[in-house]
């Protein structure tokens, strides 16, 4: 099963994020790198707090590109996808952003406030640059639209299934509707497409249930932040304890 952890870059500082990415890269199939945005409308409290800590401590896109370049230079090979909001990309310049992604070695891009089809020009630019824009499908996405998303260029990496009707953040259980949703999309997608489920997942039991329903992988975001955020003090974090607990989580969960 694919494990796709999420790292909020710069929370509470970029040096720690780099260490976290190195630790997760040993277990992950893809690492999702969050670029903080001041107004993250698809995110729940945990990622909102992480985002505002990161921004308060001075992270920005240039520094994140720099960190990714450094990690690639060290020889970390796990595929990266950026997860950020559209204004970050727009402000940087859409084409320039895609070119920088390619240059530093980021293969995919998730933009929760850019639904499929909203900016076809950008989708084409990404295709030309060989960057996968990962499509998101929700429980209420209509079938015809879901089909198109599953056929979009970015689906060669994976398609993101949003398990819950809401924002990111840890939930303890899975409801029946979420399982039925994954089964339904699996049927629609056939066997070749990779499907990863995210939003609300934090443990092995949930991962197994989604796997049984037909998911290839799971995205874990808020839970990773919950593991280390209790050790944060200002722009510092107890790195040893945080990384030990991350290691334990990965070995139990995977």
């Amino acid at each position: 099963m694919m494990f796709v952890p999420y790292v909020c870059c710069g929370d509470p500082n970029l040096e720690f994020s780099a260490k976290l990415i190195r630790a997760l890269a040993r277990h992950a199939d893809i690492v999702e790198l969050g670029i903080p945005f001041s107004d993250p409308i698809a995110d729940g409290k945990t990622i909102q707090m992480a985002t505002s800590r990161a921004l308060a401590n001075g992270v920005n896109i240039e520094k994140i590109f720099g960190m990714v370049a450094m990690l690639r230079h060290e020889g970390i090979e796990v595929p990266f996808v950026f997860m950020t909001y559209y204004n970050i990309v727009y402000a940087y310049g859409r084409e320039k952003f895609l070119k920088m992604m390619k240059e530093v070695g980021v293969q995919g891009l998730i933009i929760p406030d850019l639904p499929f089809g909203e900016d076809p020009e950008f989708e084409n630019m990404a295709e030309n640059e060989g960057i996968c824009i990962i499509g998101l499908i929700t429980q209420n996405t209509k079938k015809e639209r879901a089909k198109k998303i599953l056929e979009s260029c970015g689906s060669s990496m994976f398609t993101y299934l949003v398990s819950v009707s809401g924002v990111t953040g840890v939930r303890d259980d899975i409801d029946k509707e979420s399982i039925e949703f994954v089964k339904r999309i699996r049927k629609l997608a056939g066997n070749k497409k990779k499907l990863c489920v995210g939003f609300g997942i934090s443990n092995k039991k949930q991962a197994e249930e989604y796997h049984k329903a037909g998911a290839d992988g799971i995205v874990i975001g808020s839970h990773i932040i919950n593991i280390y955020s209790k050790y944060i003090n200002g722009d510092k974090v107890d790195e040893t304890r945080s990384l030990n607990e991350i290691e334990t989580f990965c070995s139990i969960c995977l």
Partner: peptide, 19 residues
Amino acid sequence: KGVLHGNLSYVLQDNYGQI
């Protein structure tokens, strides 16, 4: 020009696109 709250318009933002 930028995107906030679902639409493209003129937006007060810093050089990195933070509102």
